[in-house]
């Protein structure tokens, strides 16, 4: 390797250290600055526990919906030529371009008690905003592009030959999906699911608009972090933030583990990337 290679690699590491590692380390440094007892008192506070639970529950509910929708949409777009196919593609990517806070406001205007949908449901005593439903709806909105975006290119590249071969050998639709298509896209699907989950865990803007900020009830972890910080409880805010980073680390470790357990899926998609 030449000197300039080392300089390049060194620059990359230095950049990561300043932009990523330093802030993360500072979260833990600040969270434990008043000792383990204070840290534990902050984490085990009922409101913070409720926020942790709500954040995980939201991610767990949004994820399966995302997987089903993402695979179905990607498969439809990759395998069929139909009217509005391009439009569907654009629509699916739209949430990436729209500011989350605007998305939250749109949901509020439509599904809020005085919006067209919200007011229609109101007589039945069904409320969509300012509770778990609202948080799940906007979380789905902001995370729905991720799986499609990961799975679609893989489906495009693998083509439909294997699926057609399976069909001629007498496989039914579910068998093709389970034994041919899913193994091909597994790694991309997992990667998309991880990105979507990470996004769902960390979403602030859209959730903040529809949450209603009821403490111990509709405060997700990012909202809880902000509220504690505004309360002059910086240590508590950073303690809650450690849980959030921990959850993010868990998703990353899961990803590494899956790569380890399914080496063939890694090499498979590795060849395509």
């Amino acid at each position: 390797m030449l000197l300039r290679h080392y300089i390049l690699i060194g620059t990359a590491f230095a950049f990561m250290a300043v932009m990523v590692i330093l802030p993360i380390v500072s979260i833990y440094h600040r969270a434990f600055s008043e000792g383990w007892d204070v840290y534990w008192a902050n984490i085990s506070h009922p409101d913070t526990l409720a926020a942790i639970w709500l954040t995980i529950a939201t991610a767990l509910i949004v994820l399966p919906v995302n997987i089903v929708f993402g695979v179905a949409a990607a498969w439809a777009i990759a395998r069929y030529r139909f009217f509005g196919r391009r439009l569907l593609l654009v629509l699916i990517e739209m949430p990436l371009a729209i500011s989350p806070i605007v998305a939250g406001l749109c949901f509020l205007l439509i599904y809020g008690a005085y919006g067209p949908v919200g007011s229609a449901l109101d007589p039945f005593g069904i409320q969509l905003m300012f509770n778990l439903t609202g948080i799940i709806l906007v979380s789905f909105f902001v995370t729905c592009p991720f799986i499609v975006r990961e799975v679609l290119p893989v489906l495009m590249v693998t083509g439909e030959n294997e699926e057609k071969a399976a069909l001629t050998l007498g496989a039914n639709g579910w068998q093709i999906l389970w034994f041919v298509t899913l193994p091909n896209i597994l790694w991309a699907l997992v990667y998309g699911a991880i990105l979507a989950t990470a996004r769902a865990l960390g979403e602030f803007g859209a959730v903040s608009v529809v949450s209603g900020s009821i403490r111990g009830e509709t405060m997700t972890l990012p909202l809880q972090v902000e509220m504690l910080y505004n309360d002059y409880n910086a240590t508590g805010a950073f303690a809650a933030a450690t849980v959030l980073t921990l959850l993010a680390l868990v998703t990353l470790i899961l990803r590494a583990l899956i790569a380890l357990l399914h080496p063939q899926s890694r090499t498979h998609s590795g060849a395509q990337r």
Partner: peptide
């Protein structure tokens, strides 16, 4: 923000 949320249905 709270006032607006009530106008939109926060109970």
């Amino acid at each position: 923000k709270q006032a607006r949320a009530i106008l939109q249905g926060l109970q």
